[in-house]
Simulated scan of single mutants.
Amino acid sequence: MQPKAAIMQAMHWDDLQFFLSLARTGLLTIAARQLDVDATTVGRRIRRLERSLGGQTLFVQGRDGHVLTEAGRRLLARVETIEREADAIAGGGDQADGEDVRGHLRVSASEGFGTWMVAHHLGEFAGAHPHLSIDLAANSGFLDPSRREADVAILLARPQRGPLITKKLSDYRLCLYAARAYLDRHPPIAARSDLPAHRMIGYVPDLLYSPELNYLDELGPAVEARLRSSSINAQYRMVAAGSGIGVLPCFIGDRDGALVRVLPEVAITRSFWLVTHQDSRHLPRTALFVEWLSTLMLRQRSRLLGESDGIVATATLSSLLQGQA
């Protein structure tokens, strides 16, 4: 028997499929569903793989599932290389030329961008690549590409370290929004100094997962949120319900025709950063998604910068305030 064959037999080569599935999903139940086995089987196969690798620990149990250790991340990089080569030999698999791309892609994004931008258009990408399964983690917090928790992450700040490839995806703007019903019931707002007299909506300060979300400090020291949530979608719902005034990304606030911009001269600019691991940036599924998302952001630039629908609402509100002065 050849040495390489002996090694493959000793490590139970098919256990690597179980490893790949758990590494990409992070949850035993989801990995088991993909592999058409039960979760106990997945756990047993992972333990067997760890023993065959000399007792290395490949995963640790985290709050949100199974997280790769450093040994697990090194193994993932090598196994994905093998996977690409095997697919190429088979003449199918993860090809870069469209519908034939296969595999699993995990994308991490902030809740607002993930919900209102990526999710709104993701069917377009999925339709072009029907054999690719896609996870969109759009929540309060980010998965870390440097730890191989995600293939692609859209972050609010440029990472300062790690084996990462980073590029600026797009700027975006945020403005103050209120429901027409709220403004009808409350005194007009002509300057920032009027804001403390109104009910402001914002983030819970000690639950901010990124300092870039600390918007209200830029409006003045006396401006404080009295209705707070860690969720931008919940904040939007409160604003839409007429509960107060909130800072929303224009790509959220301008979509709702019942909202108008307050103090149109007040605009906050932030940026989205697109991040991939340096070992996976050339994977066809990753490269295709990065190209698609970059193109989408160019198409959506006016919406991201608030240069579309909301301008009409702003003009209407300005006229209303002038009439009340």
Rank of each mutant, 00 (worst) to 15 (best):
T316W: 14
V262T: 14
Q56V: 15
G244K: 12
L169I: 13
F18C: 11
A225E: 01
V107W: 05
A138H: 05
M297T: 13
A287M: 07
L219C: 05
A6N: 10
G162Y: 11
Q324K: 09
H104Q: 09
R106V: 09
H277E: 05
H277G: 01
A77T: 10
L259S: 05
D171Y: 10
T286A: 08
P196I: 12
E149G: 05
Y172G: 01
M1D: 12
D97W: 12
T57C: 06
E212G: 02
H12S: 11
L283K: 06
R281N: 01
Q95D: 09
G246H: 06
D254F: 07
I311Y: 06
E265V: 11
A287Q: 09
R102S: 14
Q324W: 13
F18Q: 02
P196E: 06
R281T: 14
D36N: 15
G162R: 08
S140V: 13
V60Q: 09
W292R: 01
L68C: 00
A88K: 04
R185K: 14
M200V: 07
L49K: 04
L49Q: 08
N139L: 11
G93D: 03
D151C: 07
A240P: 00
E291P: 00
R148I: 04
L216Q: 06
A153D: 08
H282A: 13
D64N: 15
V60H: 11
S110C: 00
F272I: 09
E99C: 02
A287D: 14
G244M: 08
S230R: 14
R237W: 03
A6H: 09
V260D: 02
A90H: 09
P284L: 11
T286H: 10
Q61R: 15
V223K: 10
L296C: 02
E111F: 06
R281A: 14
R73Y: 01
G323E: 14
Q95C: 11
L283F: 10
V290W: 04
Q278A: 15
A222P: 00
V79I: 07
L176K: 11
F289S: 01
E212H: 11
S319F: 11
S294P: 01
A126Y: 00
R228A: 15
A258I: 03
F289C: 09
